[in-house]
Amino acid sequence: MTFDPFFFMRGKLGGSQSGQSQQQVAYLRQLQREMRVEETLNIPLTELNVIVFDIETTGFYPDQGDQIISIGAIKVKGDEIKEEETFYSLVRSEKPISNEISSLTGLTNEQLTTAPLLSETLFEFFRFAQDYTLVAHHANHEKMFLQHASWKLYRAPFKHRLVDMSFLYRIAEPELKLITLEECCKHNGIPIIGRHHALEDAKLTALLWSIYVNKLKRLGCESLKDLYERYTMV
């Protein structure tokens, strides 16, 4: 698989789907118009506003029926984690989840039966995220599900910059082969709490982001543009 450190989700919103109000679509369309993705490339990482997030899903393949069952996120500016500015929601599941997924995430079919619809949760998540840069650990998973959901609900992908945390690991410490969130946390002395809970995983990733912002600054990488240029030289 080709490594892509930056994902761009672009497009114009089409018609609304069932459960998606005209007001919601209008809001998201306006957010797209106001979003200035390219400008974030030059903002110093120590000043960049990001939304670090995580999703829990029923599997790995949204085009084969796997679903988002929870979303968790937290705001970060530079290396400052905004502990009080978080987002978390379950997502109604269209079919029963497996015992394996229930055991892994701690979520039950009873909880997901009465949870908000994906259209409602995703809209609230985008309202929380605004035009911030999105950050996730191994973001290709989040990318696939967000693109699939955005197309399903809005008939177009959504326009956000999505940065993969593993990109930062590769630039800051290329000699290490850090893969899992557990490995990255252990390497950086971060206690692992609440694993496979979307908000708790987002908080762990936010701690890693705050650490690597400073590691990269010491290497002379002060913006996303610097990181991209350093990556092309590796």
Rank of each mutant, 00 (worst) to 15 (best):
M1R: 12
D4P: 00
P5H: 09
F6G: 00
F8M: 15
G11L: 06
K12S: 15
G15Y: 12
Q17P: 01
G19M: 01
G19Q: 01
Q24F: 03
V25E: 07
A26P: 07
L28N: 04
Q30D: 14
L31I: 14
L31V: 15
Q32V: 14
R33A: 14
E34C: 12
V37N: 14
L41K: 03
P44F: 00
L45F: 03
E47F: 04
N49E: 15
I51L: 05
I51Q: 00
I55N: 02
T58N: 01
G59P: 04
G59R: 03
F60S: 12
F60D: 10
P62F: 02
P62N: 04
D63Q: 11
Q64G: 05
Q67P: 04
Q67W: 03
I69K: 02
S70Y: 04
A73R: 05
D79Y: 05
E80N: 13
I81R: 05
K82W: 10
T86W: 02
Y88V: 09
V91P: 01
V91S: 01
E94V: 06
P96F: 11
S98F: 08
N99T: 13
S102G: 13
L104R: 08
T108L: 12
A115R: 04
A115D: 07
A115T: 11
P116I: 08
L117Y: 08
L117E: 13
L117F: 10
L118R: 00
S119Q: 10
E120A: 07
T121S: 02
L122H: 03
L122N: 03
L122P: 01
E124M: 07
F125D: 03
F128V: 05
F128P: 04
A129W: 01
A129P: 05
Q130F: 04
Q130I: 00
D131M: 09
H138G: 10
H138E: 09
A139H: 01
N140R: 14
N140E: 13
H141T: 10
H141Q: 10
E142V: 10
E142P: 07
L146E: 06
Q147C: 13
H148L: 06
H148S: 13
A149V: 06
S150T: 13
K152Q: 15
L153V: 12
P157S: 12
L162Q: 03
L162T: 07
V163E: 07
M165V: 06
S166F: 08
S166Q: 13
R170G: 06
A172S: 07
L176F: 07
L178K: 02
L178A: 05
I179S: 15
T180Y: 04
L181H: 02
E183A: 14
N188G: 02
I193N: 15
A198P: 01
L199Y: 04
D201R: 02
D201M: 02
D201V: 00
L207E: 14
Y212A: 06
L216C: 05
L216D: 01
K217F: 09
L219G: 02
C221G: 00
K225V: 00
L227H: 00
Y228E: 15
E229T: 12
